[in-house]
């Protein structure tokens, strides 16, 4: 039995090397699906940190009742840059796979601050710290590098401009919020900006026209 166990562990080791070799797997690619921008990635990691997946799925099943409610059903090719996957297993709140572009940025801002002010009777908890706390971008270069190692096609050297890129996008989001009347000191540096950027990106890759290539 000991021997068996050792074999089992060895196999674990082999799996570790395999994906490097076989990253070009036969998951159907969709041309329009692109890697997350650094800001969206930061937002996504925040989505992970807060455990949003405990209540929100990101998987529209191919039923009329679901496509009617959420939009186009999910394709495997949409998830190729999702590390980890965020399909979820429980919908206490609605699916978010197609939430991008559904509401204005300011809707998300107010909703995260106090969900009940937007949706009376909602049981979503408030997330005031996302509006209070400043977003840390320090890890971004390392994250970009790690993801490239795993197969996400960020160009060589992109990690050096990732932070600047994120800040630029953050300013755009903050600008849109200001236009909607949300005034706040250092708004573009807050965590909520990354969260909004991520939520608005969700599901938009294939919205115009899905084109399967392989």
């Amino acid at each position: 039995m000991l021997l068996l166990a050792t074999i089992a562990i060895l196999i674990g080791g082999i799996i570790e090397i395999f994906p490097m070799v076989m990253i070009e797997s036969n998951v159907p690619r969709i041309e329009s699906v692109k890697p997350y921008t650094p800001l969206e990635l930061a937002g996504r990691d925040m989505y992970i940190r807060e455990g949003c997946v405990g209540c929100h799925s990101q998987m529209v099943r191919p039923f009329r009742s679901e496509t009617e409610r959420y939009g186009e059903y999910s394709k495997s090719g949409e998830y190729i840059y999702d590390r980890p996957f965020l399909w979820g297993s429980k919908r206490t709140g609605p699916d978010l796979q197609r939430v991008g572009g559904k509401y204005p940025d300011s809707w998300h801002f107010n909703h995260m601050l106090e969900p009940q002010s937007i949706s009376p009777g909602s049981i979503m908890p408030p997330y005031p710290w996302m509006i209070r706390d400043e977003l840390s971008l320090d890890l971004l270069p390392k994250k970009i590098k790690a993801l490239r190692t795993l197969g996400t096609p960020y160009p060589e050297g992109y990690e050096q401009i990732a932070i600047a890129d994120a800040q630029k996008q953050a300013e755009r989001v903050a600008g849109r919020l200001k236009k909607d009347g949300i005034e706040m000191d250092g708004l573009e540096k807050k965590e909520i900006i990354a969260m909004i950027a991520y939520l608005q990106r969700l599901g938009t890759d294939i919205k115009p026209k899905a084109q399967a290539t392989k």
């Binding site: 039995m1 068996l4 074999i7 089992a8 196999i11 799996i15 036969n26």
Partner: peptide, 22 residues
């Protein structure tokens, strides 16, 4: 779907191990 084949392989090895034990 490389992972499918990996999982089948790993599961098979575990199963064969148990077969040997049996």
């Amino acid at each position: 779907m490389t992972v499918v084949f990996l999982l089948i392989l790993v599961s098979l090895v575990v199963a064969l191990g148990f077969l040997a034990a049996f």
